[in-house]
Simulated scan of single mutants.
Amino acid sequence: MKIVSWNINSVRFRIAIVEQFLKEAAPDILCLQETKVVDDDFPFETFRALGYEHIVLHGQRMHHGVAILSKVPIVADDRFDWQANSEARHVGVRLENGVRLENVYIPAGGDVPDRDANPKFGQKLDFLERMTRWSETLSGPTILVGDFNIAPLEADVWSHKQLLDVVSHTPVEVEALARLQAAGNWVDLGRRFHPAPARLFTWWSYRAKDWATSDRGRRLDHMWATGAAANAAIAHHVFEPCRSWLKPSDHIPILTEFAF
């Protein structure tokens, strides 16, 4: 089974490259973040035409939004409010084999890494704390995917020294993510198959005129797993060429293959 995670930054605006990617990579399940569309306006027809009959949404107009599109049956779903303000940032399902699949869009956290000066940064840390408490309650094999908006390792950013005070790579965020990982005994599948310092960037800012030449990437997108799900992982891939496609997202898709 191939599972993909991709912050698409507006699924309707970028539906052409989504369709292109699905035809080329042919994943069984696609998890999208930042879909930016209410559920009724989601482009169902494109996905169903490609065989993704099982569609679970948590949408929001113009902001946030997550979706799971699957060729295989889904037998349950949930939506957690880890932001505590009803923003559409999570959707989860259970597959027929019993594995939970949770798709999350963690807040970016604004520009200033200070809870008092920047409430958005505090919201991000609180979001991670709620996820940590949830992780402590997990009992079965689970896969957690999404845009975590944190690049935890030195090798996960283009310059560790220059980004230490930049939101997404600050010590307080890295420590919060480490607590989340420890709470659920999560395995970071990207780094299992591509140990640091291997290149594994998934995001490049739109601000660069030529993203490939400047190459100031960060690994903000992750795929973690617990228990039998982690043991079933057999490969992990990132798709850098997608960053150069027409009307690209600033994120690229990541894919993990599982032997189930």
Rank of each mutant, 00 (worst) to 15 (best):
M62K: 15
H58K: 13
V38Y: 01
T35F: 04
N97S: 13
Q60E: 15
Q33W: 01
G51Q: 09
V38T: 12
F44V: 12
L95H: 04
D77Y: 15
G92F: 00
G59P: 02
N97F: 12
K36S: 04
V66R: 00
F80G: 13
S86A: 15
D41I: 08
H54M: 10
V56E: 06
R100E: 11
Y52S: 06
V75I: 11
N97M: 12
I55H: 01
L69Q: 05
T35A: 08
A88T: 06
V66T: 03
R48L: 06
N85C: 10
L95P: 01
F42E: 02
G59Q: 02
G65K: 05
V93P: 00
V75E: 06
R94V: 06
R94K: 10
G98Q: 12
N85K: 06
E96A: 10
R100T: 09
V37P: 08
H54P: 07
N85A: 07
A49C: 07
H63M: 14
F80N: 12
R89P: 02
H58F: 09
V38R: 09
G98W: 10
Q60H: 09
D39K: 03
F42S: 03
R89L: 02
L95N: 04
K36F: 03
R61Y: 06
H54S: 10
F47N: 11
R48E: 11
T35L: 06
K36L: 04
M62D: 15
A88W: 03
E45W: 07
